[in-house]
C-alpha cells in the first residue's frame, strides 16, 4: 500500500462556491492503481487464509467482506483520513476492485481448501 502518488488535488469543499476541481489525472490514476493492487493482493491472501482455516459457505464470503473492509480502512488511514485530497470520491476507496478481487478470492479459497481439507 504505497501511497506514492500524492496528488495535488485540492478538492476540499470550501464554504464558498469557488471549489474548482483541480485534479492531476495521472496522479489520480496512480492512486487508483495502488488501490487495485492492494485489493487484489489482499483478496488472494484472504482466499488462502479462508481455505486453510476451512471456511465453507457464507463464512468465507463474510471473511471476504471483512478483508475488504479492513483494506478500505487501511487505505483511508494511509490517506491520513483526508480521502478527498487523494481521490475524487468516496466510492473509489470503498468499492473499487471489489468484484475483480472476488474472482481471485474464490479461486485461491477453493485451491487452498481443496489441498488442505478435501483430500
Amino acid at each position: 500500500m504505497a501511497g506514492n502518488g500524492v496528488s495535488g488535488a485540492s478538492g476540499k469543499k470550501s464554504s464558498d462556491m469557488n471549489d474548482l476541481p483541480t485534479f492531476s489525472a495521472e496522479k489520480l490514476q496512480s492512486n487508483m492503481k495502488v488501490i487495485y493492487y492492494s485489493r487484489t493482493f489482499l483478496s488472494i491472501i484472504g482466499g488462502v487464509i479462508a481455505g486453510i482455516l476451512g471456511f465453507t459457505g457464507l463464512t468465507g464470503f463474510i471473511l471476504y467482506f471483512l478483508v475488504m473492509a479492513v483494506t478500505s480502512v487501511g487505505l483511508i488511514a494511509k490517506a491520513r483520513f483526508s480521502v478527498h485530497s487523494y481521490f475524487d470520491c468516496w466510492n473509489r476507496v470503498i468499492l473499487d476492485g471489489f468484484v475483480s478481487g472476488l474472482m481471485s478470492f474464490v479461486l485461491f479459497w477453493t485451491f487452498a481448501y481443496d489441498i488442505v481439507h478435501i483430500f
Binding site: I44, M103, V106, L107
Partner: peptide, 13 residues
C-alpha cells in the same frame, strides 16, 4: 476455466 478467469488478478500482481 476457473483458473483462466481467476488468475488475472495474480498476473496483474
Amino acid at each position: 476455466f476457473l483458473n483462466l478467469f481467476g488468475l488475472r488478478g495474480l498476473f496483474s500482481l
